[in-house]
Amino acid sequence: MENKAPRKVTHHDHYWKFTKKISFLSFVPRKCSTRASRYKDILTGAMGGNNKKDTDEMLLGLLKKHNVDFLPFVPDAGHARLIDQAFDDPDLQPIVLTTEEEGVAFACGNWLGGKKSVLLMQSSGVGNTVNMLSLVSNCNFPFVTLITMRGDFGEFNSWQVPMGKATPTVLMAMGIQVLNVRKREDLLNTVDAALYSAFSSDQRIAVLISQNLVGRKEW
């Protein structure tokens, strides 16, 4: 049998070698204060802006401030730490899904029973939700989804690009308001606005978190 030739080193290898995996905002200093004091900062309005504290944990605090109860999710590396933290938090219950449309239906049922869900997914999953979003639109359910983007900034895997490109258009076509977050300092403020607007006036909002902010996937 012919020996397999060693794989040729391409420019991709050099490119990705120096691209550190950045899990959702992981380069901000951690353990700079206790959880209790961080939550207090959020409650007292000190969050947002250019705050250098652990933004993932602040995001968790923000969800709690808005009395979100459930986090249905199809995982994404960008949401990984948020999901891990939510599993450790007695006030938030993550719900693992087999497909994103389950999360849309779950969130609607949750509101029928008086509770709040926020759906976590990546942009590739938006395509799976399309018809289920008619439930949200037709019944005016409050709906918030936090979507980490693929294929919008420095994507290596071309298979992720078509759905990434189509994500905002598809959401808007189904009547969902799209809020883009391209800078870290805008994240908490945008999520805060989305949660407030959705649950106080029955709005349907997707927060798209750019790949620029989430970090490139390590290969």
Partner: peptide
Amino acid sequence: GAAMVGLGVAMA
């Protein structure tokens, strides 16, 4: 979506 709407209400 029926089963998941049901789960959403049941957990709420």
